Amino acid sequence: MTDSGERKEQLAANLAKVEERIAKACAAAGRSRGDVTLIAVTKTYPASDVRLLSSLGVGQVGENRDQEAGPKAAECADLPLTWHFIGQLQTNKAKSVARYASYVHSVDRARLAAPLGAAAVREGREIGALVQVALDAEGDPAAHAGRGGAHPDEVPELVDRIAATEGLRPAGLMTVAPLAGRYAGDARAAFARLAELASLVRAAHPAATMVSAGMSGDLEEAIAAGATHVRIGSAILGTRSPLG
């Protein structure tokens, strides 16, 4: 394990490379760099890395698992960070997630809205909820079996449910480039489809402006399609262990 000085240098170098990629992608798409927010996904990495990233100017942090995110957020409570929960969320974890997450990117079913909203109200908070869209389900329901995300046809009703739930506000849409179905292997087309759905959502809910798409391997395609938030893990923190 490297000492904190060496680790900070590693993170700074990786962060600079990611920032350069984002800036180039924005320029190629005719967008301002300020149009895209970087979320550093720190799953499997310690709170010490979160502290180093904060010292390097990172203000948005993403986590996938509540059992890891909760303690990490508590340990870093003194830092000026916004926490994004981006993993699959079970209803029995809503109370815990509501304590630290300002945004939940993975609302994919109506029955999750009520417990998440109620938990936010108990915490005296309002959570920005994004609908996770399962683009692999479009045209090929079998490709989506067992995976998280709402079918594209379900998105408008689910956003309406979020808007009607105390403690929540509709923040936008999220997706992961699908590995199966119509858009398999074509991240650009998948993200373009998400942008279409996001436009429809904004027509009914103008404040739902977030389009969360793109990770380490496909952030350029996401930005070209209009992503407002990219979720970057390994390109900043390094390759995770197979168990991560």
Rank of each mutant, 00 (worst) to 15 (best):
V107M: 09
R122A: 15
R31L: 14
R193V: 13
G117I: 00
V18K: 09
V107L: 07
L11M: 06
L79K: 11
I22D: 09
C26W: 04
A94E: 09
Y183P: 00
G226Q: 10
A16V: 10
E20A: 15
C76V: 11
A164Q: 08
E154F: 02
A113K: 01
T165F: 10
A23V: 12
G233H: 05
A23K: 04
S4Y: 10
L158G: 09
L56M: 14
L112S: 03
S106T: 05
T175R: 01
L116D: 03
S241D: 15
E9L: 12
Q10A: 14
R31G: 12
G5K: 15
R161C: 12
P71H: 02
V97R: 13
Y100Q: 02
S216W: 02
I162P: 03
I236F: 03
A235Y: 06
S48D: 15
H105G: 03
A110F: 14
K43G: 09
V131D: 02
A74S: 15
A73P: 05
D49P: 07
M1A: 15
I86V: 01
L194M: 14
D140E: 10
T239S: 11
A69D: 04
S32T: 09
A222P: 04
V58N: 12
L38Y: 08
G181C: 06
K24M: 13
L158I: 01
A137C: 08
G244T: 06
H151W: 00
S102I: 07
V61T: 05
A150P: 07
R161I: 05
M215H: 04
S32I: 01
R65K: 15
I232N: 02
A137L: 13
T91E: 13
E68G: 02
T82S: 10
R21I: 06
Q10M: 14
D140K: 04
D218F: 06
V58S: 14
S55A: 14
W83G: 04
A25F: 00
E138K: 00
V58W: 13
V61I: 15
E138N: 04
A142Q: 13
P46G: 13
E63Y: 10
M215Y: 02
G167Q: 06
L197E: 06
D49W: 01
D186K: 01
L89Y: 06
V155T: 04
L38Q: 04
R7W: 00
